[in-house]
Amino acid sequence: MEHTPDSAVRAALDLRVVFSRLRRRIREVAQDADLTPSQESALSLVGKHGAATASALAAAEGVRPQSMATTLAALDRHGLIRRAPDPDDGRRQLVTLTESGRTRVEGNRQLREEWLARAFQDRYTEEERQTVLTALELLERLSRP
């Protein structure tokens, strides 16, 4: 078996930790007190998919369909999603964002993007930002199959 260099092991661990912290921090920026993190995540997912079934959303989120059903019920109570019969299969319902849900998703996205841009501006020099951009080009390879 081939030995994995220590630098690869360290890079993998450090990257996972930094991404986890950064993801948590970005979510905190626009976190709405009336939604749980799972509800916020599902709301964003509905926004990405446009129209999807609860089971497709559950699969995309990696949760049980029952958990997604509970989450969607809460989003429905907040008036952020609507459910309508699937025109191709009346037994299923398609979930979409309401205007209020769309406004919330887009507003949160904008807040997060603005926070991140300001953080790069305030915490890094131009040279450091260029280094980050170069590193991101390299890291992009990890996202390929």
Rank of each mutant, 00 (worst) to 15 (best):
M1E: 03
H3G: 02
T4G: 03
D6C: 07
S7N: 04
S7V: 05
A8N: 03
A8F: 08
V9N: 07
A12P: 04
R16F: 12
V17R: 11
V17L: 15
V18R: 03
F19Y: 01
L22T: 07
R24P: 00
R25A: 10
I26R: 09
E28Q: 07
A30R: 07
Q31C: 06
D34V: 11
L35N: 07
S38D: 10
S38W: 06
Q39V: 12
Q39C: 04
Q39G: 06
E40P: 01
S41W: 05
A42L: 14
L43H: 00
L43A: 04
L43N: 01
S44W: 05
V46M: 05
G47F: 04
A51Y: 03
A54R: 05
A54Q: 11
A54V: 09
S55H: 00
A60P: 09
E61W: 01
G62Q: 03
G62M: 01
V63P: 00
P65C: 04
Q66N: 12
A69F: 02
T70L: 10
L72H: 02
A73D: 15
A73K: 15
L75R: 09
L75K: 08
D76G: 13
D76K: 14
D76N: 14
H78E: 15
G79K: 10
R83Y: 05
P85I: 04
P87A: 11
P87S: 11
D88V: 11
D89C: 02
D89P: 05
D89H: 03
G90L: 09
R91H: 11
R92H: 15
R92K: 15
Q93P: 02
L94R: 10
L94M: 11
L94C: 08
L94S: 10
V95C: 13
T98S: 15
G101L: 05
G101K: 01
R102S: 13
R102V: 00
R104E: 08
R104M: 14
V105S: 06
E106C: 04
N108S: 12
Q110I: 11
R112H: 02
W115T: 04
L116Q: 07
R123I: 00
Y124V: 07
Y124C: 14
Y124D: 03
T125H: 01
E126A: 15
E128G: 04
E128I: 09
E128P: 06
R129H: 05
V132K: 05
L133P: 03
T134R: 15
A135I: 10
L136M: 14
L136S: 12
L138R: 14
L138N: 06
R141Y: 12
R141K: 09
R144S: 02
R144D: 07
